[in-house]
Design a protein around this nucleic acid. Structure first.
Lengths: 129, 129
DNA sequence: ATAATATATGAGCATATGTTCATGTGTTAT
DNA sequence: ATAACACATGAACATATGCTCATATATTAT
């Protein structure tokens, strides 16, 4: 998208008449251009959504400590096998966890070292607040 | 909660008969004990949930670059004032953004340096995948 | 005071989410 | 082959979410 096109696109959608915005229009155009592409924005939101549930947070906390089979996750979280399995699938689709099958048992573990960092940063944020 | 009580609590909820779990029971007890407290778990999930929406991700991206008034966020995101205002409130309640009022204008900015780190880590995760 | 501007918010609605329940699939044991 | 076990999954249901619409609040200008 050209800078021209973006400029045209900056018509007002806010129910204002556009007489004044506190930042100069060029600055706003610049901010819009500096965005990562839309698909990445959506992917980031998907990633955070995957982490944005207490059950999934607890699963990740467990897997941070040790690779576990579905059965053991059920025990640690005290939840039904179905609920846990659904959530593990969710986390697998987001590439947060991975599987390893041994006979009829499926072991889950974290698929990414970044998750640990993200958790650490978030804990810092919560303490700071 | 004592270790005894936890051990008692580890009855099977998964529709299994508990004959075998791949990790020894003591290990599972240990994993359960190493959890951060439940309220922190919930807070973390709340935090991620706040980041887990494309609109809010875009707002944060904008504010990462520059403090902006509500009106300007509307322009940059091309969304209605109401929708933006609702989302800003959400982010404010989660302490991700803060307000600064000047006359009738309200400027929003990020309330926490950790958010930038979390975003960076998450982008790394997405590239890795 | 009246109007205009900037933002905030409650209600309503369509869609998404998380769990349960029932059942399916794949593996091991007898 | 049959049963038992470990896990996966579709349907259904209650609740949560994100937007729109209308309206409220607060500040500034005339």
């Amino acid at each position: 998208m050209t800078q021209e096109a973006l400029r045209e696109d900056l018509t007002d959608e806010c129910g204002h008449d556009g007489a004044d915005s506190s930042a100069p229009r060029d600055t706003l155009v610049q901010i819009k251009e500096n965005f990562v592409d839309e698909s990445t924005t959506i992917d980031m939101a998907e990633m955070f959504k995957a982490l944005g549930d207490p059950t999934r947070v607890r699963i990740i906390y467990a897997l941070l400590q040790k690779e576990l089979c579905v059965h053991d996750v059920c025990i640690v979280l005290d939840m039904t096998q179905s609920a846990v399995s659904h959530q593990l699938r969710y986390l697998r689709n987001t590439r947060i966890v991975k599987r390893r099958k041994v006979g009829k048992t499926v072991f889950y573990s974290l698929d990414d070292r970044h998750v640990e960092e993200i958790f650490a940063q978030t804990l810092q944020h919560l303490k700071h607040g």
